[in-house]
Design a protein around this nucleic acid. Structure first.
Length: 419
RNA sequence: GGAGGCUUCGCCUAGUCCGGUCUAUGGCGCCGCACUGCUAAUGCGGUUUGGGUCUCAAGCCCAUCCCGGGUUCGAAUCCCGGAGCCUCCGCCA
């Protein structure tokens, strides 16, 4: 949700943000008009209510003869109040709708443009050179680690079973990620995968990308696409003690994505699936600390990539490719030899106060309560990470090299070989 | 799924039957001040949240007694619907 005060004080900043995103600039003016209308309605309603209150007190104290006259006036006044309240409710809703529709204000320095206009911040490691690389689907099948055929039989396209060493890989990755996060001071959390509509809306996932989200109509619940949703909702409607900030959580949950509109993309294997498990970092910080925290989340993501011994690059996502809640987003893309390219493995977003305003999460500031900033970052999206692991670390003999950091969680194995 | 009970401004609580200075009581905690030769005791004051007004502050105005409707000139209080929590029963990993 957009900061109304800022919108009033500096509408040009908001317009510029809309422009760089490729969003509607005139929405800013409609928002300001809606705010004016609401303010007028508030003033009218308040005045009428005050009068009604005074009159009511007089009636309580009045003698029987005065009473009749006062009651007549009060009756009329009640109608006026009712009308004013109706108008207030209307303008209120219009303003709220306008605020909810507007995406977050883009941070200074975000590259302009669209999906392909990202800026590469860093390139780490050397992509392995492999002759005739096999993709993870093939390797996974050979290791009996990934069963996409039975996944399709049981659940449909974009579903899979992790079996044997594949299942062990999931637990190994989750354990490694949780161990790292806990050591860094994150509170580990196992979060619900189903959430209420207001939580889903509060995190900004019901905007432009609502069709990406699974909804259980019978129960009016949504399946989360990331545990970010539940972790953001965790402190909704709360006032956080400034001394407790920053609050850092590492959430584990299943994630569900409809992948509507991605027909034909990554149809093979488990790079793009309807369901996967993920360890997600989530931070609540004071607004002034948000940019620094964003860099820290990125650093933790890089640490994890380093542990998996991946060659990767870090990109600064362009404004036109930002989600509605993000003011800035950094992705890490790891090298997939079979595709000869970098593919996204993690993503970290600074949502500034966008989610906190919608979810009513505040802290005590110097001049009263103020919204906090929320940030999220992938530590390990399991399925895609397994896909990269098999692809990236495949050996000429058909085995798969196990990164050193992962070995303790896999019984010390140094390579995975087909049975 | 069934039956019953509960929900008040951080926590506990009075008030709800019988609608009107409830502009919500008291305790605890917390903050400030005073005092006492110590950071203890005592006294005094303050302490829900959101919005508006205001150069700032103070002050003032409106809303807020779980949420949403309704009745009424007027609702913490009456009526309807919903949510959450607790107890018991049923079912279930």
């Amino acid at each position: 949700m957009i900061d109304l005060k800022l919108a009033r004080d500096d509408p040009d900043r908001l317009r510029a943000s809309q422009r760089i995103r490729g969003a509607d600039e005139s929405a800013v003016d409609r928002l300001l008009a809606a705010d004016d209308a609401r303010r007028a309605a508030v003033a009218r309603t308040d005045a009428l209510r005050a009068e009604q209150k005074t009159l009511g007190r007089s009636i309580a104290q009045a003698g029987p003869d005065e009473r009749a006259a006062l009651l007549a006036r009060a009756k009329h006044l009640a109608d006026e109040v009712k009308a004013a309240e109706a108008e207030l409710a209307e303008t209120d809703e219009a303003l709220r709708a306008g605020q909810l529709a507007m995406p977050n204000i883009v941070e200074d320095g975000v590259p302009p443009g669209d999906e392909d206009d990202f800026v590469t911040l860093d390139v780490v490691g050397t992509p392995p050179v492999i002759e005739n690389p096999r993709d993870h689907t093939e390797i996974g099948a050979a290791l009996r680690a990934i069963d996409t055929e039975r996944g399709a039989k049981v659940s449909g396209a974009r579903f899979y079973f992790l079996t044997g060493v594949g299942a062990q890989l999931e637990f190994a990755l989750v354990n490694l990620a949780m161990q790292q996060a806990t050591a860094a001071g994150f509170v580990p959390i196992v979060a619900p995968a189903l959430v209420k509509p207001e939580i889903m809306e509060g995190t900004g996932f019901l905007g432009a990308h609502a069709s990406e989200v699974y909804r259980l109509a019978d129960d009016d619940l949504y399946l989360v696409g990331t545990s970010e949703v539940a972790l953001a909702g965790y402190h909704s409607d709360e006032i956080l003690d400034p001394g407790d900030l920053p609050l850092r959580y590492a959430g584990f949950s299943s994630c569900f994505r409809r992948e509507a509109g991605s027909y034909g993309k990554d149809t093979r294997g488990i790079i793009r699936v309807h369901w996967f498990d993920k360890v997600e970092m989530f931070s609540y910080v004071r607004t002034g600390d948000a940019a620094d925290e964003h860099r820290r989340l990125l650093a933790w993501e890089r640490e994890f990539m380093d542990k998996l011994e991946f060659a990767y690059r870090v990109i600064d996502v362009a404004a036109g490719d930002l989600g509605s809640s993000a003011a800035r987003k950094f992705d890490i893309e790891a090298w997939f030899p079979s595709q000869g390219t970098y593919r996204e493995l993690t993503s970290t977003s600074n949502c500034t106060t966008f989610q906190a305003r919608r979810l009513n999460i505040r802290t005590r500031g110097e001049s009263g309560n103020e919204p906090v900033a929320t940030l999220n970052g992938t530590l390990c999206a399991v399925a895609r990470t397994i896909a990269c692991l098999l692809d990236h670390h495949q050996q000429p003999d058909g085995s798969v090299y196990v990164p050193v950091a992962l070995r303790p969680w896999l019984g010390g194995r140094e390579v995975l070989t087909p049975a």
